[in-house]
Design a protein around this nucleic acid. Sequence first.
DNA 1: CCAGCCGGACTTTTT
DNA 2: GTCCGGCTGG
Length: 642
Amino acid sequence: MQDNTAEKLDVNHYLLNGLNPEQREAVVTLDKALLVLSGAGTGKTKVLTTKIAYIIENGYAYPSQILAVTFSNRAAREMKERVFNMTPGADAVWLGTFHSICAKILRSNADLIGLSSSFTIIDMDDQLKLIKQILKEMNVDKKMANPVANAISRWKDKCIRPNDLRVDVTTVEGKVYATYQERIFSYDSVDFGDLLMYVVRIFKENSHILQKYREKFKYILVDEYQDTNMSQYMWLRMLSPIGAGLCCVGDDDQAIYSWRGAEVGNILRFEKDFMNTKIVRLERNYRSVGHILGAAASLIAKNTTRLGKTIWTDGDSGEKLVIQRAYNGYDEAKIVAEKIEKLRKESVEFGQIAVLVRAGFQTREFEERLIAYGIPYKVVGGLKFYDRQEIKDLIAYMRLIYQTNDSLAFERIINVPKRGIGASAFSKLHTRAIERNISLFQASKDMLVENTLRPSVTASLTTFIEFIKSMRKQKELSPVEIAKAILDETGYMRALANEKTLESQGRIENLKELLIALEDFDDLHMFIEHVSLVTESKRNNADEVVSLMTLHSAKGLEFEAVFLAGWEEGVFPHNMSLQEGNVEEERRLAYVGITRARKYVYITYAMNRKVYNQWMSNLPSRFLAELSPEHVVHIKGKTVRD
DNA sequence: CCAGCCGGACTTTTT
DNA sequence: GTCCGGCTGG
């Protein structure tokens, strides 16, 4: 345009270096609603990060005018790191998960919903507790808690509120939903689904707010678009009604979250939804050898509802996929462990090896074998650091100190460590809180004034309440100091130390670890926000250990060698999916699994397997037959038994 | 109120 | 098998 064109071209040139033509096109296309269909291993993160840098470096927008949303914290972190390396000033970019971005927006507009800006974000644990509570009041079997929690989440995924006609109030789920929503609101809390639902509602009901954000975000980038649910879609459509400046990256072949409310339809419908759209396909794969890509392509081709794309490489065809039959689950784990040892001798690092399974519980059998073989491993996505009992206890104290209305936190710790306030005393407090629609903390204070509780309960409840109050007063304390005071003054640490078991030892270690992590935070609120939204601990990344995880949590990762275990009908594809008639999603899961590998894929299946303490024989997974024969080798061989 | 024992349910995937 | 929750006796 002007005299600085040459300079701009130089900048462009520098950033676009090393991109293939399609990637380049995806980066420089800014004036259209752009959908980047990005096959596995085709460099979508590279495109996204380069695009952000490109926008900033060329001055098309200020960093703060760019919104980039991902699904996982891992993806957000990776993107942040890579963008920062490319361009300074990128820290002003609104880059984060859907949930963290929404939390940010909701905090600055909480009053419009009737929440305080310091509302609490509750996790699934609290959610389930609350639902169980409500079920108990309704005299319904607690077994319903999980189905109810699920139903509520699915409604929220679609921005359906309790009074919506689509909620059938004659069902348990519908009834609980209304009470649940009232109760959680009275606690000044929101759950994951609320984060999106409330922001959508704010946008809908306050056009000036929506307008503000629309003007603010000149460019919106969305990662894993195939996994967006209805409320995320509504959210995006409101922020970018015609799709100007919108760039969605995704792969319909890797849509594996329908059970969580994701709608593949969103990506399939892209061209109809927005004006002036453009689709760029990234098909050139830089990750895997030819046989792996060939096998993956032949499998996914069996799906009927796809936009269609074929990943390819001009690199080596490499080794064929190995399919091996095992006599039973035990043998399967043994085969895998032995093969891992062999790979290690061929100098494949442990950190470059992953064992992927369909369901979380399947990791146990492999853990046992790996321990027996002395192979170091980690279970990814299993018990998360912030999910551990002792960590949640400590955080509950901090939550209560920060926000005394947080009755879920109150309930968690009122008798932890044991201070003689058991079920009966608690139930009195709870009843009072419900009757007057006040927090448990307030109810406690009231009942202490009335002095209607048993003397021993009065004494310890007073101590507890006073402790919380005094911590609240000491504003100058840092989060670490607060945490130390909690562990000390409540006797929590002492109680643990007295147990002297291996388990309590580990818990103490975990708490110490948390204290170290706490040093990164200057105020309590920042830390609480962090733990509410970030479920994984960032460490353990560089460990040279074998990764054990579900296919779902493997998405976005890559390894030199990948073991895909339990390929049997009923296990994978899973029975539930078969019943729901959702085999295509299982097939996509298989596709995701295979494409995690750079060089080696080993697929195993067991003829017999113990489920619920009962032996079952399963047929080999249908997916095995769907892999094009030219890319695989079968080893039916001997059954290895001890 | 609490510790310890017993019986049943559990297993799809998670921000 | 294991974990959780309910029941019972101290």
